[in-house]
Design a protein around this nucleic acid. Structure first.
Lengths: 129, 129
DNA sequence: GTCCATGCAAAAGATTTGCACTGGT
DNA sequence: ACCAGTGCAAATCTTTTGCATGGAC
């Protein structure tokens, strides 16, 4: 069941470039960085390798970016759980104390808010997993 | 400076439909829901109104969905700040205690993880804001 | 009547995918 | 030699935008 996985020059360069920065680049930024070394690499290859490396735990894919936008008619303070399989979102009561971040400065950023997000398995995906 | 804002049937129905569910629908789901009542509404109108309502604070737009994916070569536990203006992301040291969520069940979801996300203004955007 | 909001369609962005070829094993 | 991985291009999906018309005020 373990995936066969060949070591290609493209994957090594992509990983090395990403490990070499702390800027949390987007796929097209990684594409540019990779082309410095491999001018003929394709964007599709970059996406395929980022996906593979993330599934292997070699790199991290940030937060919920890339998902479709979702909207909430409830503007009272509360948290959310997102199903790691299907993306469905449900509410979590706001009963956790969050560090009050406003006004604090971190690494040049003036913080204005915090958000707690849970990740989980919805009942449908849990039963069919 | 306060925006002129006319009350249209479309906006009212979109708001009412969104308020009527707890499912955190996507824009195209809200489009379908709205078409039940206004069959000739357009998807562009739905997007424009969701954007307007969110800016007015009438509804909430979830998390970071809709942004471009970003990748991180650092898989050690740490948090992120995202600039609310330009989307730039930086690291925040993992020094906050998070509720250990794994195994807890909330509203049918089996939790598998938590994530703390900060929102802020990066130095560039703070100076040019 | 004014001019903001709409419907429609096209454009723009980001990401994924089909396919023939390449290269790691 | 085999077949996973690649380059390329087209397709897909989500969101935004231009423009003429409609409707709230």
């Amino acid at each position: 069941m373990e995936r066969q996985c060949r070591t290609t020059r493209q994957r090594l360069v992509i990983l090395e470039k990403l490990r070499g920065v702390t800027s949390h680049p987007t796929a097209d930024e990684i594409y540019s960085m990779t082309r410095e070394r491999l001018p003929r690499v394709s964007l599709g290859t970059v996406y395929r390798n980022l996906d593979l490396l993330a599934r292997q735990g070699e790199i991290a894919c940030l937060e919920n970016a890339g998902f479709q936008k979702r909207f909430d008619g409830n503007t009272e303070p509360h948290h959310h759980v997102r199903c790691r399989i299907c993306g469905r979102v449900a509410d979590v009561p706001a009963r956790f104390d969050l560090p009050s971040a406003s006004g604090v400065k971190v690494d040049g950023f003036m913080l204005t808010g915090v958000r707690l997000e849970f990740e989980g398995l919805c009942s449908d995906c849990a039963s069919s997993h």
